[in-house]
Design a protein around this nucleic acid. Structure first.
Lengths: 191, 191
DNA sequence: TTGCAATGAGAACGATCGTTCTCTATAGTA
DNA sequence: TACTATAGAGAACGATCGTTCTCATTGCAA
């Protein structure tokens, strides 16, 4: 028999694909059962409620985001390159066939007002990304405001790419990021 | 008896408040009936389905956005000021008690995958705003890329303000916008 | 081999929702 | 005033969904 660890993983992967493509509310637990291949009983033993499953899916997405960003950063030589690599990561993501925007923003819009746990998970993911950018900006001696600016660009690129259906926003954001980094460096010289 | 025009308006206003605060899916038509004071029969005569009501609400939001941006722009003396006024408008909006992010982004995340009409309405609103910024950027002789950058900042500020619960993103975006406008002007001088 | 605990497949339950229907009251018209 | 068409209040319908329950089956321990 498939052990609980593997079962959890497969159920989360199945639910993630369905939730991301169609929204959480339009996917019934029965669809998760069908796609994952596990009976409802098993699913409910591993995830006591649908909300718990949603949180597990968001946690899974969070780890995938972190590792994706980290992998993109590997190719860069310096902290500035690692900052810009974020936008290269976005550009590749936006081009994926099933791209449908940021799962956290979508979940927040759909479930945020009704579930404080989901809202909290979304907030935690965004704060985590902000800290990542803060750290890199700190390494290049940039101002704290620069990090917040770069995060706004990444955030805006995700929603714009989702709604427009075009990956162009990633390049726009990358260009803007380069300019803002440069401008911050120039301003630091005068400080 | 209240005529259809006024009834439509009141129903849309009631539905807008409910949908925006709690999400569309968690609000039943019965709640719209209770808040608007009109019987379901009347509501369904004016809006043949809930989706039609949602579209009317989005249209209403779209007009409010346009007029809000226009009013903020009035106080500015030149096109650059009118561009920055967008972010002042956002700052005031983010501070409203019931602010809960961009209704279009929320609707897209919640209903987009299931309703092409809603997805289309959201896309249309975003394109309209992009054209507005394009026009202002054109007036100051800016590059087309600058307009796209400014829109990304506004978009990112809206989702970040919603999720973080802080209005600070508006000022961050405004600062970034000023820098990008300046940088674009400098780049134009070399062109 | 016998008994038992857990599993799997799917039916069933209770609640909710979008939408329609019923029935009474009412306003307008000839 | 009598007729008619519409409005209003709310019950009712059909579908869906999250969650639980039934019951036959299976794998394992003694």
């Amino acid at each position: 028999m498939i052990d609980d660890v593997q079962a959890r993983e497969r159920i989360v992967v199945a639910a993630d694909a369905l939730f991301y493509a169609h929204g959480v509310n339009s996917i019934g637990m029965d669809a998760v059962r069908e796609r994952s291949g596990f009976p409802l009983k098993r699913i409910y033993k591993l995830f006591p409620s649908k909300e718990d499953l949603v949180l597990a899916v968001l946690d899974h997405r969070s780890r995938r985001w972190d590792s994706g960003i980290a992998r993109a950063a590997e190719t860069a030589a310096d902290p500035t390159g690692r900052l810009l690599a974020v936008f290269d990561f976005l550009a590749a993501w936006f081009r994926e066939d099933d791209f449908r925007g940021c799962a956290f923003i979508n979940a927040y819009g759909e479930l945020g007002p009704g579930s404080s746990r989901v809202a909290g998970a979304v907030r935690a993911q965004k704060e985590s990304f902000q800290r990542y950018v803060d750290d890199l900006v700190g390494r290049i001696g940039g101002s704290p405001g620069l990090a917040a600016q770069l995060v706004l660009l990444a955030e805006g690129a995700q929603t714009t790419a989702a709604i427009s259906g075009s990956p162009a926003a990633a390049d726009v954001a990358r260009d803007a990021a380069r300019i803002l980094i440069e401008a911050d460096r120039d301003a630091a010289r005068d400080r």
